[in-house]
Amino acid sequence: MTTELTITGMTCGHCEKAVREALQGVPGVDTVQVDRASGQASVTGTADTQALIHAVTEEGYGAQVNA
């Protein structure tokens, strides 16, 4: 399963890395791709969507699932 997220608040490479590492830390995540320029993240695996959003918001960024 692939979950596409819109991430807000990323302004630099450090932000992108922080979001990537937060998402990678969620149980059930297989792969993570984060693109700061587009504000998008793609996560594959069986992780709970709310857990993904929570991980990102705990780092201080906004996150929502793409419709």
Rank of each mutant, 00 (worst) to 15 (best):
T31I: 11
V19S: 09
C12H: 03
V65R: 13
G13H: 00
T3Q: 10
M10E: 03
H14M: 11
A67P: 15
D35L: 08
A55W: 01
T8P: 12
V34F: 06
E16G: 00
R36C: 01
K17A: 14
H14Y: 04
Q33A: 12
T2Y: 00
V32T: 05
Q33M: 10
D48P: 04
V32M: 06
L52C: 14
V19G: 11
A47Y: 06
N66V: 15
V65I: 09
Q33S: 12
H14L: 09
G45A: 05
N66C: 08
L23K: 10
H54M: 10
V26N: 04
T11P: 02
V56R: 00
A63I: 13
G9R: 14
I53L: 15
S42T: 14
Y61H: 07
T31K: 15
V19C: 12
A41K: 02
V56T: 03
T31H: 14
H14E: 01
M10T: 00
G9V: 14
G28V: 05
V43A: 07
V19E: 06
T2F: 01
C12F: 04
M1P: 08
Y61G: 08
T31W: 01
A37M: 13
V65P: 04
V34Y: 06
A51G: 09
D30G: 09
A67W: 00
A22N: 01
L5W: 03
V65E: 15
S38D: 13
V29N: 04
M10C: 07
K17H: 13
V43Q: 03
D30S: 10
D48N: 14
A67G: 13
A63T: 03
E4A: 09
A22R: 01
L5K: 00
E58Y: 00
Q64S: 12
T49K: 11
T49Q: 15
Q50I: 04
Q64Y: 05
P27E: 02
T31G: 02
T46G: 13
A22H: 00
A67L: 10
T3V: 15
G28T: 08
Q33L: 04
R20H: 09
R36P: 04
V29T: 10
A41M: 02
T2E: 08
T44A: 13
